[in-house]
Design a protein around this nucleic acid. Sequence first.
RNA 1: GGAGACGUCGCAUAGUCUGGUCUAGUGCGCAUCCCUGCUAAGGAUGUGAAGGGGCAACCCUUCCGUGGGUUCAAAUCCCACCGUCUCCGCCA
Length: 425
Amino acid sequence: MIDLKSLREDPDVARASQRARGEDPELVDRVLAADERRRALLTAFEQQRAEQKEVSRSVGKASPEEREHILAKAKALAEEVKAAETEAGTAQRELDEMLAQLPNLVLDGVPSGGEDDYVVLKEVGTPRDFAAEGFEPADHLDIGHGLGGIDTERGAKVSGARFYYLTGIGARLELALLNAAMDTALAAGFTPVITPTLVKPEIMAGTGFLGAHADEIYRLEADDLYLVGTSEVALAGYHAGEIIDLSDGPKRYAGWSACYRREAGSYGKDTRGIIRVHQFHKVEMFSYVRVEDAEAEHQRLLGWEEQMLALVDLPYRVIDTAAGDLGSSAARKFDCEAWLPTQQRYLELTSTSNCTTFQARRLGVRERGERGTHPVATLNGTLGTTRWIVAILENHQNADGSVRVPEGLRPYLGGLEVLEPVAAR
RNA sequence: GGAGACGUCGCAUAGUCUGGUCUAGUGCGCAUCCCUGCUAAGGAUGUGAAGGGGCAACCCUUCCGUGGGUUCAAAUCCCACCGUCUCCGCCA
């Protein structure tokens, strides 16, 4: 949610932000009109209410002969107040509804445009030249089959398309990766958290996931709960409605959870293997920081993500996502994308968003300032997901179907250096 | 799933039966100041959130788990829901 007061003071910033996202700048003016209407009706209601309270109080003290007269007056006032309250309430709801449609203001420097208008900030590492090495790289699913690590057929049998089993070394690899991610977070001062994966509607709404992409989210109708697509949701809700103390620096949490996504709009996209699946695991960083510290924290989160990518020794690039591809909560987003040899393209492995005060305002996460309270900033970023297995298998494969274990992961696999195909054993 | 108790301004508690200076009292904590040679102790004042109006001092409205209802008037009465605790039943 955008701050109404600053929107009133400087609507041009919001209009420009809307344009950068490729969305309607006139929504800003509709919000302002609704706000004006609401304030007028609210003031009218409050004045009538104050009068009514005074009259009501005088009823108790009134002499018997005055009483009847005063009571009649009070009754009439009560009617008026009720009507005024209803009107003011309706105006408030209309405003809220409109305000909820307004996405976060993008930060200066964010490229305008849509999905393809990202800016590459840097490229790290060099993709392997498999032609020079003299073999055609296999894709992650073939390698996974060979290792006895990935079973998509039984996944489909039991749960449907886009489900899978990780077995044997596949399961161990995921645990190793996520443990490495947790250790990285711990070393950086994060508090490890295992979160709920079912959350209430107001928490899901507060994080901004129930807007344009609501059909991405699993909903349990019988219980009115949502399955989270990331532990960001549960971690953003963790301090909902609280006044937190950031005087000792940011509050940093590393969430470990299963993630669920309906992948509603992605028919036919990444259907092979475990690139795009309905359920996976993720270690997610989440920071509550002061507003003035948000951009610096964003760089720090990116730094820890790159540390993890270095640990598993993958070639990757960092992109600055364009405004139109940001999602409603983010003011800026950096993705790290690993090179995928069999598809000759980059695949998103991490994503870190600076949500500024957008989520915190909706969820009521504040800190105490000089004069009263104000919302904090929230940021999130990926430290490891099931999908990373795809990039690890493909980039570190050998001609014989075995896979070199990147050194950083070896301690988490009992010192194992090479994953051998099951058939070869 | 059944029965019962409870939910009040950071914490603790009064108020609810019997609706009306509750404009929510008190203690603790906290903040500032005063007093005290130091310490211990004491005194005074202040002490939440959201929204609105005003240049400002300040004023108004809302908030007693949440949402409805009754009433001129609700922390207080009624209904529903949520949460916590205790007991019973069932299940992993």
